[in-house]
């Protein structure tokens, strides 16, 4: 059990690191949010899951397990609000973008 927990912990920290690298490397706010929601959410979920495997069905483990769906909803709804807000505020998309259907819909 401890070895599974350690493997999950390493995977989680690695994905958190990839997310942070993406936050710096990608060109504009929309693409940065992509890396910030996906990599960081699953990385953090993996760390919480490793906590569950280490402590089993004790109070710490169950709390870590419940935190996973809460984190999912919080990060998706947060990303949704941020990306919509920045589009309405008028932040330009990067030059590489090829299509923007949302501009006509507002």
């Amino acid at each position: 059990m401890n070895s599974i927990s350690t493997v999950l912990l390493v995977i989680g920290v690695a994905f958190d690191l990839f997310g942070c690298i993406g936050l710096i490397r990608l060109p504009d706010v929309y693409n940065r949010l992509q890396s910030a929601t996906k990599c960081v959410t699953l990385g953090t979920c993996s760390i919480l899951l490793s906590l569950f495997f280490r402590y089993g069905f004790s109070d710490v483990g169950v709390k870590a397990l419940i935190a996973i769906p809460l984190l999912f909803f919080a990060s998706t709804v947060g990303a949704h609000a941020l990306i919509r807000g920045s589009h309405i505020f008028g932040i330009k998309m990067t030059d590489k973008s090829i299509v923007d259907d949302y501009k006509d819909a507002k």
């Binding site: 994905f15 299509v99 949302y102």
Partner: peptide, 22 residues
Amino acid sequence: ANFDVAYRVLSPRMPIKPGIVK
């Protein structure tokens, strides 16, 4: 999704072609 984004972030050429579709 995670492996996909990790690949795009770490690859030196950064294969992205972003856009908003309906």
